[in-house]
Write a protein that binds this DNA or RNA. Structure first.
Lengths: 218, 218
DNA sequence: CCGGGTTGTGAAATCCAGTTCACATAACTC
DNA sequence: GAGTTATGTGAACTGGATTTCACAACCCGG
C-alpha cells in the first residue's frame, strides 16, 4: 500500500477529524479539509485518488463541488456523505457523479468497507496495465501458441515433432519459435526426455482461456 | 453436436453392442469393432476423436494397441476398460497413454459421464483457435486498449479529449487509433454526445480481464 | 465571425512479431 | 558408423500493428 492519499472534506470538525483518525489507524494516508473551496486548492497539490465529501456544507456544498472535481480529475473517486439514509439522497448523489455514498450516522466499519471497496476498484484499473498482464496477454494473442497450450492441456506431454505434426504445421522452426516464447513466459517446460508439458502457470493460463471462452460465447 | 464418432473396441460382443447402444441412445454416433487389428483399419477411415478400448482381448490387447493409435493419431482420446478396479490397473492404463478409464463392471451412467467429460475436453481444444477468440485476444493484447477499457469501466462514459488526458498520452491521434479498433470490435461505442462507453460485450471483456488478473496473480 | 479547443481522417514512417531459410548438433536405426 | 530423424539456433526477411504527421471539419464562447 503506497502513500495513497484520501481527502476528507467536511465542515464538521469533529466528524472530519474522527474520519481521518479512523482511516489513519487503518493504514490509509488521509488528510482533512473544511470547505469545498479549500478542497479545490488542496487537490491541485495532493491529487488524491479518493475523496470523502459531505454534501451539506456552508458555502459551496458537496453536490456543487463534485462536478468540478470530476471535470478536472475524472479518475478521482468520490464517496458522498448524505445526512439521512433515503433512497432519494442516495440516487441523487450517484446521479450527479458520486461513486459511492455513506449515510449519517455510519459506523466505523461502514466507512472502512466503503473506502476499501472503492480503493479496490481503483487498483483494478492500474492492474490492467501491469507488466505481468502484458506478457500473459501477448502470449495468448497468438493462435498457434493457444493451440500449443490446448494440445498440451489435452495430451499432458508431447515431444517436439509429434506436437508439430499434431498442429499440422509444416515448418518445424515456426513451432519452435512459439515454444521458445512459451518457455520464456514460464507457461511450458521440458522434462529430461525433452517432452514439453504445461507448468502450473501454464495450466492456470489454460483455465483462464476456458473461462474467457465461456464468457465471450455466452 | 456434429457426427462425432466414438469407436468401441471390445471382443465381447454383448458388452460392445450394449455400449454402442447406450451411446447411440444418448445422441452420440458410435460404432463397434471386435479386435485391435480391425480397429487399426477402421480408424484410418473414420478417424474417431474418442475410442473406448478393452484392455483384455485375444490377439493384440488394448495395452498394445494404445501406443499405436497414439502414435498415428496423437489427438485421439482413449478410454480404457479395465477388468477390475484396482489402483494398479488404473495407473498402468494412464501411464501407457490412456486418457481415462472405466472399471468393469460399470453402470450406464459411469460410461456416459466419462464419455461426456472426454468429449468436453476435446471440444475445448478447438474452441481456442476459434475466430472470435482471436479477435478478442488480439484486442486485449495492447496495453493502451486495456487502459481504455479499464477507464471506461470506471467512469462509465467519457469524451475523447478527457480520455486522452486521463491516459496521459500526448498524441491524441494515437488514442483515436485504438478507440477505432475497440469500436470495430464492438467493445465500445459512442452516444449522441460523442461520449465513449462500454458496450455489453465490452463489459463482459472487462469482467474477463478481472478474472484473468485474479487467476494470474493468485 | 474569429479563434481555440474538440474530434476525426488518411498516408507515410516505424517498429516488431512472426516467418523463413540455412545450417548445426544430438539421438536413434540399421 | 552411415544415414535418417529429432531438436534446435541465429540471421535475414516480411507483413501487419502501431506511431507519427499533416490536415480538416466541427462546435462553441465571446
Amino acid at each position: 500500500m503506497t502513500t495513497e492519499t484520501i481527502l476528507v472534506i467536511d465542515d464538521d470538525q469533529d466528524l472530519r477529524e474522527s474520519i481521518v483518525e479512523i482511516l489513519e489507524n487503518n493504514d490509509f494516508a488521509a488528510s482533512g479539509c473544511d470547505s469545498a473551496e479549500t478542497a479545490l486548492e488542496k487537490v491541485k497539490v495532493t491529487t488524491p485518488r479518493l475523496v470523502i465529501l459531505d454534501n451539506m456544507m456552508p458555502g459551496m456544498g458537496g453536490m456543487a463541488l463534485m462536478p468540478l472535481l470530476k471535470k478536472d480529475y475524472p479518475n478521482i473517486k468520490i464517496i458522498m456523505i448524505t445526512a439521512f439514509s433515503t433512497v432519494e439522497n442516495a440516487v441523487a448523489a450517484m446521479k450527479s457523479g458520486a461513486d459511492d455514498y455513506l449515510s449519517k450516522p455510519f459506523r466505523r466499519e461502514d466507512l472502512l468497507v466503503t473506502v476499501r471497496r472503492n480503493l479496490e476498484e481503483l487498483k483494478f484499473a492500474s492492474q490492467l496495465s501491469e507488466p505481468g498482464m502484458d506478457d500473459a496477454l501477448a502470449c495468448l494473442a497468438n493462435p498457434i501458441r493457444r493451440q500449443i497450450l490446448a494440445t498440451l492441456a489435452r495430451e499432458k506431454q508431447m515431444r517436439f515433432m509429434n506436437l508439430t505434426r499434431e498442429l499440422e504445421i509444416s515448418d518445424h522452426t515456426k513451432v519452435n519459435f512459439h515454444l521458445k516464447n512459451l518457455k520464456m513466459n514460464n507457461l511450458i517446460s521440458q522434462n529430461r526426455e525433452k517432452a514439453y508439458h504445461l507448468t502450473p502457470e501454464g495450466e492456470k493460463m489454460v483455465d483462464c482461456l476456458q473461462l474467457l471462452f465461456k464468457k465471450i460465447s455466452s
